[in-house]
Lab assay of single mutants.
Amino acid sequence: IGSLMYASIFGNVSAIIQRLYSGTARYHTQMLRVREFIRFHQIPNPLRQRLEEYFQHAWSYTNGIDMNAVLKGFPECLQADICLHLNRSLLQHCKPFRGATKGCLRALAMKFKTTHAPPGDTLVHAGDLLTALYFISRGSIEILRGDVVVAILGKNDIFGEPLNLYARPGKSNGDVRALTYCDLHKIHRDDLLEVLDMYPEFSDHFWSSLEITFNLRDTNMIPGSPGSTELEGGFSRQRKRKLSFRRRTDKDTEQPGEVSALGPGRAGAGPSSRGRPGGPWGESPSSGPSSPESSEDEGPGRSSSPLRLVPFSSPRPPGEPPGGEPLMEDCEKSSDTCNPLSGAFSGVSNIFSFWGDSRGRQYQELPRCPAPTPSLLNIPLSSPGRRPRGDVESRLDALQRQLNRLETRLSADMATVLQLLQRQMTLVPPAYSAVTTPGPGPTSTSPLLPVSPLPTLTLDSLSQVSQFMACEELPPGAPELPQEGPTRRLSLPGQLGALTSQPLHRHGSDPG
């Protein structure tokens, strides 16, 4: 009997000691992992102490058991019943959930998450997105703005933001810190809205009876308010094209079509300037034949640059190039080494500058006005007194259609001029006259002087055409309008007829 009692007592005591040691061994194993994590990542002392304290409290609170892992091991129907039991206190005593059906309560219970916070733990920081609604079931918390405590909340209090009033989550206007050990039930806004969409009859009752104890939403960050730039940057990543407008005076608003859609830094370009900076079609017209890549860069430059609305530039004389043409100036200075066709295309550029300027006046029909002061630039669209967005969009579309028509007509005119030049060069190729044979009589004449090349004649003739079109064909006081194609086609051969009437002889060394 004594040996039996000794064996039973010894066996029970050893089993008890073994169970104690097993729990202690698990605790030390998990604690060792936490300390190894702290050492590996070199976490500083204040945060390291918070980690160790939280682990110790969580171990004593749950005995080292992962409740979520245990809950996920059950089937979904059983999980709903378990969640309904775990959140029964909240669902029974909170006013917004009263009167809900059994199915609605089960769906809500599945969406709730339980959070346990030790003292000093910050649940929400200032500036964080308010993605959830919090219900306090135990403990107390404090809300701070800077170093000032603005509120202390306790059991059955609710904090967050009214989700039904805002389409997008706002930002917190303060820090939420736990004063004691707290148990909180939180539900994400997407989950709550999903359940309320499934039960629309409960939705009206819920929003009407929901009383948020403390609204954390920062009202200064609401979209459309003066301080909402940061919020707009976070939620409006896919922005449309940006529009900046110059201020319109009362006198300017009476004149229709007073602005032109141009790229940034293009205030001095012609009315047909689009795409790359520098001139019509993204580059100076005089350098068009020598740089074919300008047409390839036109599309990307047009689509990537934001639109700006600026006044037209001052008018340019008909014979003056659009500006920024070092290529043609070098050719004029060193005409001995340049291609003979460069002079002809220089005359073509003069005609283009004249036609572009006159067509700009035809479509816009307003006098040039000086540029406004820099303080009046970049007025935002949302400022008071601005035109409605639809009106601005319609004006932009009208300007775009005008620019497209202008570009089409300029292309047709350019093709006409090039065809005339090619026809003239085919009839009378460039050549130098040879020395004529002296006559049989004693009164022999001296050799004839060489005839100037055709490109120079073409430049003079085209300059005469531009001056003739600019000065004589337009009646005084009438708006400057571009001439039609047949009129220009008839004027060019008439001007060139006198020049080509002389018999030109080919030089023996000319390969053409």
Results as ranks from 00 to 15, higher is better:
residue 194 E to T: 07
residue 262 L to G: 10
residue 204 D to W: 07
residue 406 L to G: 02
residue 339 N to W: 08
residue 232 E to D: 13
residue 159 F to E: 02
residue 302 R to K: 05
residue 477 G to I: 13
residue 494 G to I: 09
residue 149 V to T: 09
residue 333 K to Q: 09
residue 415 A to Y: 04
residue 406 L to S: 04
residue 132 A to W: 05
residue 446 S to N: 09
residue 270 G to C: 13
residue 393 E to L: 14
residue 142 E to F: 01
residue 189 R to C: 08
residue 128 D to H: 01
residue 365 E to D: 09
residue 374 P to R: 08
residue 454 L to Q: 07
residue 240 K to C: 10
residue 366 L to I: 14
residue 325 E to Q: 07
residue 349 S to G: 10
residue 425 M to T: 13
residue 135 F to C: 01
residue 422 Q to H: 13
residue 135 F to W: 12
residue 354 F to K: 13
residue 374 P to S: 08
residue 505 H to R: 08
residue 204 D to N: 11
residue 366 L to Q: 10
residue 240 K to W: 06
residue 361 R to I: 12
residue 231 L to F: 07
residue 350 N to H: 06
residue 498 A to G: 10
residue 413 D to V: 01
residue 457 L to G: 10
residue 138 R to K: 13
residue 184 L to E: 02
residue 493 P to S: 05
residue 443 T to G: 10
residue 226 P to E: 11
residue 254 E to H: 15
residue 422 Q to S: 08
residue 453 P to Q: 10
residue 179 L to W: 02
residue 365 E to K: 15
residue 263 G to S: 13
residue 445 T to E: 10
residue 267 A to G: 12
residue 228 S to R: 09
residue 261 A to F: 10
residue 255 Q to A: 08
residue 257 G to K: 10
residue 427 L to D: 03
residue 317 P to M: 07
residue 148 V to Y: 08
residue 153 L to V: 02
residue 158 I to E: 03
residue 291 S to Q: 14
residue 188 H to T: 12
residue 270 G to V: 13
residue 426 T to M: 11
residue 361 R to Q: 09
residue 422 Q to Y: 09
residue 253 T to R: 11
residue 444 S to F: 08
residue 296 E to R: 10
residue 370 P to Y: 06
residue 442 P to T: 07
residue 188 H to K: 09
residue 181 Y to M: 05
residue 403 L to S: 05
residue 486 P to R: 07
residue 251 K to Q: 10
residue 454 L to I: 10
residue 507 H to V: 09
residue 470 A to M: 09
residue 434 A to F: 08
residue 423 R to M: 05
residue 241 R to D: 13
residue 342 S to T: 12
residue 141 I to N: 01
residue 507 H to S: 13
residue 229 T to I: 07
residue 157 D to N: 04
residue 504 L to V: 10
residue 456 T to F: 08
residue 353 S to N: 08
residue 169 P to I: 09
residue 235 F to C: 08
residue 238 Q to K: 11
residue 213 T to R: 03
residue 143 I to E: 01
residue 213 T to G: 04
residue 500 T to G: 07
residue 495 Q to G: 12
residue 381 L to H: 08
residue 132 A to V: 05
residue 325 E to L: 13
residue 181 Y to G: 07
residue 456 T to Y: 05
residue 299 G to F: 04
residue 506 R to T: 07
residue 198 M to R: 09
residue 474 L to M: 04
residue 347 G to N: 07
residue 463 S to F: 10
residue 179 L to H: 06
residue 416 T to H: 06
residue 247 R to Y: 09
residue 141 I to V: 10
residue 445 T to D: 12
residue 332 E to I: 09
residue 247 R to P: 13
residue 197 D to P: 02
residue 333 K to L: 12
residue 504 L to D: 15
residue 466 S to P: 09
residue 272 S to P: 14
residue 243 L to H: 07
residue 372 P to H: 09
residue 166 Y to G: 11
residue 176 V to N: 03
residue 240 K to M: 12
residue 231 L to V: 11
residue 136 I to H: 01
residue 397 D to A: 10
residue 237 R to D: 11
residue 204 D to C: 10
residue 286 S to G: 13
residue 131 T to W: 13
residue 243 L to W: 14
residue 196 L to K: 02
residue 280 P to S: 09
residue 397 D to L: 07
residue 205 H to R: 10
residue 478 A to G: 10
residue 215 N to P: 01
residue 155 K to G: 06
residue 328 M to D: 14
residue 333 K to C: 07
residue 492 L to E: 10
residue 198 M to Y: 10
residue 324 G to Q: 15
residue 216 L to R: 02
residue 304 S to V: 06
residue 152 I to Q: 12
residue 292 P to K: 11
residue 437 T to H: 06
residue 500 T to L: 05
residue 207 W to A: 04
residue 479 P to Y: 14
residue 158 I to M: 06
residue 462 L to T: 09
residue 451 V to K: 01
residue 185 H to C: 09
residue 289 P to E: 11
residue 261 A to L: 12
residue 464 Q to P: 13
residue 159 F to K: 01
residue 457 L to S: 09
residue 191 D to L: 01
residue 130 L to Q: 01
residue 241 R to Q: 07
residue 143 I to F: 01
residue 304 S to I: 14
residue 377 L to V: 11
residue 345 F to E: 11
residue 453 P to N: 08
residue 207 W to R: 06
residue 136 I to D: 01
residue 302 R to F: 10
residue 131 T to R: 06
residue 375 S to T: 01
residue 512 G to K: 05
residue 345 F to H: 11
residue 228 S to K: 08
residue 363 Y to R: 11
residue 225 S to W: 09
residue 137 S to W: 05
residue 497 G to M: 10
residue 353 S to T: 14
residue 169 P to C: 10
residue 256 P to H: 09
residue 449 L to E: 08
residue 147 D to F: 02
residue 396 L to W: 15
residue 418 L to F: 07
residue 393 E to I: 03
residue 459 L to Q: 11
residue 258 E to P: 11
residue 426 T to G: 08
residue 495 Q to W: 11
residue 247 R to V: 11
residue 250 D to T: 12
residue 270 G to P: 06
residue 445 T to G: 06
residue 332 E to C: 09
residue 226 P to D: 10
residue 329 E to T: 12
residue 211 E to P: 04
residue 254 E to L: 09
residue 231 L to D: 13
residue 306 P to V: 13
residue 361 R to D: 07
residue 431 A to M: 10
residue 372 P to G: 10
residue 378 N to A: 10
residue 193 L to E: 10
residue 256 P to A: 13
residue 430 P to C: 12
residue 412 A to P: 03
residue 324 G to P: 08
residue 262 L to N: 10
residue 421 L to K: 05
residue 416 T to S: 15
residue 479 P to L: 11
residue 505 H to P: 09
residue 317 P to Y: 05
residue 349 S to Y: 05
residue 327 L to F: 09
residue 315 P to C: 09
residue 362 Q to D: 13
residue 388 P to K: 14
residue 445 T to I: 13
residue 455 P to M: 09
residue 290 S to Q: 15
residue 323 G to P: 06
residue 459 L to N: 04
residue 201 E to C: 04
residue 353 S to C: 04
residue 162 P to H: 08
residue 498 A to W: 14
residue 443 T to P: 15
residue 415 A to E: 11
residue 431 A to N: 13
residue 424 Q to M: 09
residue 357 D to T: 11
residue 497 G to I: 12
residue 400 Q to G: 06
residue 423 R to D: 04
residue 412 A to L: 13
residue 174 G to T: 11
residue 214 F to W: 08
residue 207 W to H: 06
residue 409 R to W: 04
residue 316 R to C: 15
residue 200 P to I: 01
residue 212 I to C: 03
residue 241 R to Y: 10
residue 216 L to M: 04
residue 389 R to T: 03
residue 444 S to C: 09
residue 224 G to Q: 09
residue 499 L to E: 10
residue 394 S to D: 04
residue 150 V to F: 06
residue 335 S to K: 15
residue 265 G to E: 09
residue 263 G to P: 08
residue 195 V to D: 01
residue 209 S to N: 15
residue 274 R to A: 10
residue 313 S to D: 09
residue 473 E to Q: 08
residue 165 L to R: 14
residue 265 G to P: 10
residue 217 R to H: 13
residue 288 G to K: 12
residue 173 N to T: 08
residue 334 S to K: 15
residue 336 D to W: 03
residue 192 L to E: 01
residue 177 R to Q: 04
residue 362 Q to R: 09
residue 458 T to V: 05
residue 375 S to C: 08
residue 476 P to E: 05
residue 267 A to C: 12
residue 242 K to P: 10
residue 475 P to Y: 14
residue 160 G to A: 03
residue 454 L to E: 11
residue 151 A to E: 01
residue 133 L to H: 01
residue 378 N to H: 14
residue 449 L to R: 13
residue 480 E to F: 02
residue 134 Y to Q: 03
residue 166 Y to A: 07
residue 273 S to R: 08
residue 290 S to F: 13
residue 231 L to N: 11
residue 440 P to Q: 09
residue 354 F to S: 11
residue 423 R to Y: 05
residue 188 H to D: 11
residue 270 G to M: 11
residue 222 I to L: 11
residue 286 S to H: 07
residue 326 P to L: 12
residue 282 G to T: 08
residue 335 S to G: 11
residue 366 L to N: 13
residue 237 R to K: 06
residue 176 V to I: 03
residue 440 P to I: 05
residue 389 R to Y: 12
residue 431 A to F: 09
residue 260 S to D: 14
residue 314 S to Q: 11
residue 340 P to D: 11
residue 197 D to H: 14
residue 266 R to A: 13
residue 139 G to A: 01
residue 474 L to C: 11
residue 250 D to R: 10
residue 499 L to T: 08
residue 362 Q to Y: 13
residue 387 R to V: 06
residue 187 I to A: 02
residue 305 S to Q: 15
residue 428 V to T: 08
residue 459 L to D: 08
residue 427 L to T: 13
residue 371 A to C: 10
residue 186 K to M: 14
residue 141 I to E: 01
residue 445 T to A: 08
residue 388 P to S: 12
residue 460 D to Q: 13
residue 264 P to T: 10
residue 182 C to E: 01
residue 291 S to T: 15
residue 466 S to F: 03
residue 245 F to W: 12
residue 202 F to M: 09
residue 305 S to V: 10
residue 168 R to F: 10
residue 335 S to F: 03
residue 438 P to M: 11
residue 286 S to K: 11
residue 300 P to A: 08
residue 167 A to S: 10
residue 430 P to Q: 06
residue 271 P to S: 14
residue 303 S to A: 09
residue 341 L to R: 08
residue 374 P to N: 13
residue 366 L to G: 13
residue 241 R to L: 09
residue 401 R to G: 10
residue 209 S to M: 12
residue 130 L to Y: 01
residue 413 D to C: 01
residue 181 Y to P: 07
residue 361 R to E: 08
residue 376 L to I: 07
residue 411 S to D: 03
residue 211 E to W: 02
residue 289 P to G: 13
residue 348 V to P: 14
